[in-house]
Design a protein around this nucleic acid. Structure first.
Length: 278
DNA sequence: CGATCTACCTGATGGC
DNA sequence: TGCCATCAGGTAGATC
């Protein structure tokens, strides 16, 4: 569920409401969400520590602690991070509870338990989180330059959408935003990357930046199932600006001529206008 | 190298 | 109403 804009919205909530606070106590329900290490390592690593910052790389939340360790939270498909007054009623599937010094609690909630929480020593990041080393550029948190992007596109014979979804190439884009970015760039999801001319490359580069930043400004996308919410439990509004995602059968509002089609590409549901995306 | 399939889980939805 | 199949925002690993 959550992609870069949703994770960034959660990050900002943590920066505003949780950074600088001390974690007094931690409870772990289902061990599966701490499978990367163990229940004991999470509890020992977090108890008594103060959260010093809230960072993000792609869809990974990274929270440095005053101990020198770091917390990683990944929401995967159905994870939520919520912040509430101490003693508030918790949703089902609340697997981690952090009791903060200011009588508030941070909850990690995840029905499908694909998500995870881990405390690790940054010096051992390569052992605990080896995937971080191979992550591509974060187009919001880092410099996302046109030139290397163009060189990468020219060098691969892959369809654009699976390429945008590949976290080794660009970190943070998921299924919704891949479709929205390609629509804005007027490029078909199955178009081969190396076939783009320099104008198309520029449109794609600009669309990556503009779609993601507009989605962040809107607080992310909350679909009808309301699975994604921010730290306070509020939904985002970018779903109202989706032009293709979950709009199969509707008239394309960009060109006014085509209809939005739904196909499957790389095993993912894919939405595009066959008239204005080429 | 790249495409495809599977697995990991639970809940919502739609058809019959 | 109930039962069953299908699908979901992510990612890693196996296989061809």
């Amino acid at each position: 569920m959550p992609e870069l804009p949703e994770v960034e919205t959660v990050r900002r909530g943590l920066a505003d409401r949780v950074v600088g606070r001390r974690v007094e106590r931690v409870e772990v329900g289902r061990e599966r969400v701490v499978r990367r290490t163990s229940r004991e390592e999470l509890i020992d690593g977090l108890s008594g520590a103060t959260i010093m910052a809230a960072n993000r790389r792609g869809k990974y939340l990274l929270l440095p602690l005053d101990s020198g360790d770091e917390v990683m939270i990944h929401l995967r498909m159905s994870g939520q991070v919520l912040h509430a007054a101490a003693g508030s009623a918790r949703p089902a599937h609340t697997h981690v509870v952090m009791y903060l010094e200011d009588d508030t609690e941070v909850w990690f909630v995840d029905p499908r338990t694909f998500g995870e929480v881990v405390v690790f020593d940054p010096e051992r990041v390569g052992e605990v989180l080896p995937e971080l080393a191979g992550m591509g550029v974060d187009p919001v948190a880092e410099q996302f330059e046109l030139r290397p992007f163009r060189a990468m596109l020219r060098s691969v014979r892959r369809a654009l959408k699976p390429l945008l979804l590949d976290q080794h190439v660009i970190a943070g884009i998921g299924n919704i935003y891949a479709d929205e970015i390609l629509h804005r760039a007027r490029l078909r999801p199955d178009r081969v990357a190396s076939s783009l001319d320099s104008r198309a490359t520029r449109r794609l580069h600009e669309s990556v930046g503009s779609v993601l930043s507009e989605a962040i400004d809107a607080g992310g996308s909350t679909l009808s199932d309301a699975q994604y919410v921010d730290l306070m439990g509020a939904g985002g509004s970018f779903q109202n600006d989706h032009r293709v995602y979950a709009r199969a059968g509707e008239r394309c509002v960009s060109c006014g001529r085509g209809w939005i089609r739904r196909t499957v590409l790389g095993g993912r549901s894919t939405h595009f206008c066959s008239v204005c995306q080429r």
